[in-house]
Design a protein around this nucleic acid. Structure first.
Lengths: 337, 337
DNA sequence: ATAATTTTTGCAACCGGTTGCATTAATTGT
DNA sequence: ACAATTAATGCAACCGGTTGCAAAAATTAT
């Protein structure tokens, strides 16, 4: 069907090696030979079969892009950035959707069957052993949006969730809130635990501030909404730090239903800064996740691994910043800190 | 590194063919041979290299998933469905992000280099010749969310945009609106043109209804917002049909800024029914795009093509339905139709 | 038990490339 | 003009599998 190396070599009247060499850079080919081969290749519309060459070179330029996060709008942006960045480096993303059913083992085997050069795992809500499974299989792996640890087993790039929790706490304190709440995603997720930890730790410096906590059943609009409905029915706080923008927006919806107004009656700060958060009928104050930095750093780490597979695991942390919008009351200029 | 066929054959003390056959179903292998080989394979942790086998079989089980739509939240859902469905059929999506720079030719070459078994193009805003380029390269191709035509050059599955326009028109008429507007995406897009055409055609049956039209500069929140701001500054209509939910939400934001209320002062109907549209602080009445049906039908068509490459191009159309929420006034029970 | 038939197995060539090595051609030095 | 180098080319083996064909083994028939 498609023309092969042999076809080109015959048409050009040269050896197969010669053709192969004109398509591998760094190989020794004379100018006239190259021209001759290129002519024949053009005539035939030939382009080399990466997969066949991968057999001998051992490189497929395929990168497994693994995620289980196909529900959070922020991940569309993540996929956009990843695919562009990979394409820019001549790499191809083989997408793996890690649904609840599929077990890790299976995905590892799958990606090895396609002999991917490396794997990028993009998710914060993944079983911790998952990335390691790839590492153990001898495949370079980078865990983007993963959990920080001081002694990483695999490359991790993301944010410091504890610090993010502290940041949220500081910003609520700076606005003079005295009764604050943490509303996390599913309690089990380590990212949630870390955010909570930082949040509580920072607030511990101010014993007069009352801190409560609760957890939505999922990282979804509905879960956030239901959780906030429950909170409003009880003895509510003045402001909440929600573990995700989607939860925040669900919470806002519940608040709105109750005819309460934001930020006068109740304050909300989210995390992620998904695009919608900036839409001006949402206008959510939130902590921005430096997505672009995380993605590019992950890719950089991945290409470094491809060059030097022995590279030691590294953790890269990016700072988060608050994006001030309309769901928290203004900074209190009076008072101390 | 990873164990190969040869390793297994040596350990089991059988020929390489024997090993190959135990991993190809339909091949003739005795029960004891199979057991013996499987034992050796398990010991070594062997699993066959799909890429190597593709050399002889001609099948990679790789499907190019091509899109340029990494900005519309609805496409996250689309990717989710596609990847799951493909995985369910033992196929792997090779994701291609068709940015503005990358030219079609290039992507075609790229996917041929990886000898993908087929290509699914998922986008409504693609240059028309694009899908054909794959077809011409002899690769089975399905255009999901593509434009309908009576004599399709390639498989297309999607909705009838003209009909969707009519549907919007009918629902506005049924609610007694007398001055209605069409607010489309970029004017050039054929999908926009078709929706407009249907919208206008249906309304032509009622000459007393005044119809206006305008186009946002992009399928984005901001573009929708700006366009609606412009419309509100002029002689506005009573209700608008927006070519996309994202535009609708932008429009709602502009309306809200003006202290106008929906649906009392102004009605909006969107198209897509993205998840956010149902969030209850948006609550957009919209025309639901049958995404799941389109995706599954596309995959079905693709697998059919893989079985029988000679299959003639076919267009599959799915009906759209209105999802009633809060941005259009209630049906007028009085009056005729 | 022997012949005829069917099933299982191994050999060897092939898929579309790459690459070490030996050979030939082109350069350079003198 | 001739030897010494260096660059370009082709041969053949290999990457990790598959598969047509013939030989060997197992079944079935007589």
């Amino acid at each position: 069907m498609a023309p092969t190396l042999k076809d080109v070599s015959e048409r050009a009247g040269v050896s197969r090696s010669a053709v192969s060499r004109t398509f591998t850079d760094g190989a020794s080919v004379s100018a006239k030979m190259r021209k001759r081969v290129e002519k024949a290749a053009d005539d035939l519309g030939y382009s080399p079969n990466v997969l066949a060459s991968s057999l001998t070179t051992g490189r497929t330029k395929l990168i497994g892009l693994v995620s289980n996060n196909f529900h959070n709008p922020i991940f569309l942006e993540v996929f956009d950035l990843f695919t562009r960045a990979l394409q820019g480096k001549g790499l191809r993303p083989l997408l793996v959707n890690l649904t609840d059913e599929t077990d890790p083992e299976n995905s590892v085997r799958l990606l090895r069957q396609y002999s991917v050069d490396g794997v990028v795992v993009a998710s914060s809500t993944l079983p911790p052993g998952f990335g390691k499974a790839f590492r153990d299989a001898g495949v370079p792996v980078v865990h983007a949006f993963g959990r920080m640890t001081s002694a990483p087993q695999i490359h991790v790039v993301g944010i410091d969730n504890i610090e993010a929790g502290r940041l949220a706490a500081r910003s609520l304190m700076a606005r003079g809130y005295r009764r604050v709440g943490f509303m996390g995603g599913p309690e089990a997720a380590s990212s949630t635990q870390d955010r909570l930890e930082g949040f509580v730790a920072e607030l511990a410096t101010r014993p007069e501030i009352n801190v409560s906590q609760s957890f939505a059943s999922a990282y979804s609009f509905d879960a956030g909404r239901r959780e906030m409905q429950a909170l409003l029915a009880g003895n509510r706080a003045e402001a909440y730090f929600c573990g995700d923008d989607v939860l925040s927006i669900g919470a806002l919806s519940a608040i709105q239903d109750r005819q309460l107004s934001v930020p006068q009656d109740i304050g909300i700060i989210g995390l992620n800064d998904m695009e919608i958060a900036g839409w001006n009928n949402i206008n959510l104050t939130t902590i921005r996740l430096p997505i672009s930095e995380i993605v590019h750093s992950s890719i950089e780490l991945m290409t470094a691994m491809l060059r030097d597979p022995g590279r030691l695991p590294e953790a890269r942390i990016f700072a988060c910043h608050i994006v001030e919008r309309g769901t928290l009351r203004p900074l209190q200029t009076t008072g101390a800190d």
